[in-house]
């Protein structure tokens, strides 16, 4: 699985930035990374390559998740360039499947079965449907997502983009890049968009 589509497109900008943050903190970081590479071992699908930062992670790690505006904009553009919208132009699938995907928290851990479809772990961090009362609060509430924002095609695209790669709109967002990393399939993302944007989805009741 190709989870390392490293977005090093703006590497020149990045190197410039890295040079601007030499400080002692970086020595400890280098020490920390070297230590982890020594102390960790691959298990299941979780290979040692996961300890390497990609370009985006490197910037976020070095700026305490607050990248300078210019760099953030440039790198967000780089992320956007790797966005793949569905070829058939349809952004919404089935909200019922979407609800199941939103509930499922499995995927990408060393104890997950390689090849088995991953969940979106959405409820871990977001309030979504009205029936699920066990939801996390790391992300904003998505209840009434379509109802409050409007059911426009632009908002469908926004939702699809956010799930595909949350970093396109917010470079150091806490949310994973589910499409970019191949964690969720195109159909799964469509189903999640439907959960948020279908007027008949319980989210919008």
């Amino acid at each position: 699985m190709n989870i390392r589509n490293i977005s090093l497109l703006s590497s020149a900008a990045m190197i410039a930035l890295l040079a601007a943050f030499p400080s002692q903190a970086q020595d400890y970081r280098a020490q920390a990374v070297a230590m982890m590479k020594r102390d960790f071992h691959a298990k299941g699908m979780a290979g040692m390559d996961r300890l390497n930062e990609d370009g985006l992670q490197a910037i976020c790690n070095r700026t305490n998740n607050k990248p300078p505006k210019g760099i953030a904009e440039q790198m967000e553009k780089d992320e956007a360039a790797s966005l793949k919208l569905p070829a058939d132009g349809k952004l919404m699938g089935d909200w019922k499947s979407g609800e199941k995907i939103a509930q499922a928290g499995n995927g990408m851990t060393w104890s997950d079965k390689p090849g088995a479809p991953a969940g979106g772990s959405c409820y871990n961090c977001h309030q979504i449907g009205p029936k699920e009362t066990s939801f996390g609060t790391i992300g904003p509430s998505l209840f009434h997502f379509g109802k409050t924002r409007g059911f426009s095609p632009e908002n469908q695209k926004y939702a699809y983009t956010k799930i595909y790669d949350s970093k396109i709109t917010n470079l150091c967002s806490s949310m994973p890049r589910f499409g970019h990393t191949g964690t969720l399939t195109e159909q799964q993302i469509k189903d999640l968009v439907a959960l948020l944007m279908d007027p008949s989805s319980p989210v919008n009741q």
Partner: peptide
């Protein structure tokens, strides 16, 4: 504080 891996966590 080190973010890495497929979920950027």
């Amino acid at each position: 504080h080190y973010r890495a891996g497929p979920y950027d966590f």
